[in-house]
Design a protein around this nucleic acid. Structure first.
Lengths: 199, 199
DNA sequence: CTGGAAATAATTATCTATAAAAGAGAAATA
DNA sequence: TATTTCTCTTTTATAGATAATTATTTCCAG
């Protein structure tokens, strides 16, 4: 359990980057962050390295780290990668979907629809998407998809936060329905459309 | 330019893990490695974190790092991910392939066929596969594929190193031929077969 | 002999200090 | 006035030391 300090810093910083609280291009100065978390700069370095590994920051040796930019080209790239990998995951996931896992996913769907603000919705949306793919049982694939979701989330915050309104997501319901009847092709086509649309 | 010490350590360790010189499950002790590279343990930690980010090691907090295992299930997983992502990359790559890029790829193919031992062949094989996909122009996709190739390389070393013999790879030649005539579907089907076979 | 608790050793995580590098700005020269 | 170079400041990278946690061994009771 004992969460390491670097873990804490990583979680906080990644959340701030996702929400846009830390803007793209911003410098991440080690001792500033260290002071903010009342620690030394060593665990800060570790947290920054992990940000880099997840594509949220980029290091230029001896010149420090910056929050990565999020240009439209990369947004499109992330969407295409998500289409490729999530359809793969969904194939396995549909096969392995148990009633229990389906209930978890449907609860996540309801929670997502009931979200009362953008950050809450975004977090629950990610939970939903993870729930429908987790049963695929391919950890490396899921991990890669998670990273892509983080990039997508940054884009969602950057472009949709002001316009966000509570609403029922019919795509989510349709995906659940397709999973229930183990209709892989229906689930896949809805998910693909959903991923492309939500950009 | 100024390569940081952590870079050096990371390169050396990742190479050792890929070739199997550092076996799966082996403990990576910080001060042992630090002594071996005549440095302190701080850059060692950074190198280890990067190994973890690339899936070559796994950390249990306060208990150290171990080289990740490479079970058959994950090998299959990596192959399926490679199929999904490399076909995507190949579509864009075929469209953007210039005569110059094609020559680079064909040179890489010849170098690969001319390799005189397994480690040399493995390195050149990776160069070839990267050469045919680089023109896709999607950096994040290429980066993810690179990590998958590293995992594949570990498997190749573990299972084929003793049996390796020099040979002409007809798949590679066929892929180059398909790229030359901009035949996406032919290139894709050969590449998919090649990825599945080379496991 | 065996099982478990306490002490010891080994190892990781963090802190403080130092060295090296990069960047900014001022002074000197052309 | 423009440019170059030097110095000063800021920031990163590494080293050495300390604290905290885990693993191991030893010793005693049963």
């Amino acid at each position: 359990m004992t969460a390491t300090i670097a873990d804490t810093i990583y979680s906080a910083l990644s959340q701030q980057i996702i929400t846009g609280d830390l803007a793209a291009g911003e410098k991440l100065r080690q001792d500033h962050i260290a002071r903010a978390f009342d620690t030394s700069h060593v665990p800060v370095r570790e947290a920054l390295l992990r940000l880099e590994a997840h594509g949220l920051a980029k290091s230029e040796p001896r010149k420090g780290m910056r929050v990565t930019a999020l240009d439209p080209a990369e947004v499109r790239e992330v969407i295409e990668m998500r289409v490729a990998l999530e359809t793969l995951a969904l194939q396995y996931s549909t096969q392995n979907m148990t009633p229990a896992a389906l209930k978890v996913a449907d609860d996540a769907r309801k929670a997502c629809d009931a979200a009362e603000n953008m950050p809450q919705w975004e977090a629950r949306n990610r939970v939903f998407h993870r729930a429908i793919l987790t049963p695929c049982g391919l950890p490396r694939l899921l991990h890669t998809i998670d990273d892509l979701h983080i990039a997508s989330a940054r884009h969602l915050f950057a472009h949709w936060r002001p316009k966000w309104v509570q609403r029922i997501d019919t795509d989510h319901a349709a995906i659940i329905q397709a999973l229930k009847s183990k209709d892989v092709s229906a689930a896949t086509s809805i998910l693909v459309r959903h991923i492309r649309r939500a950009s």
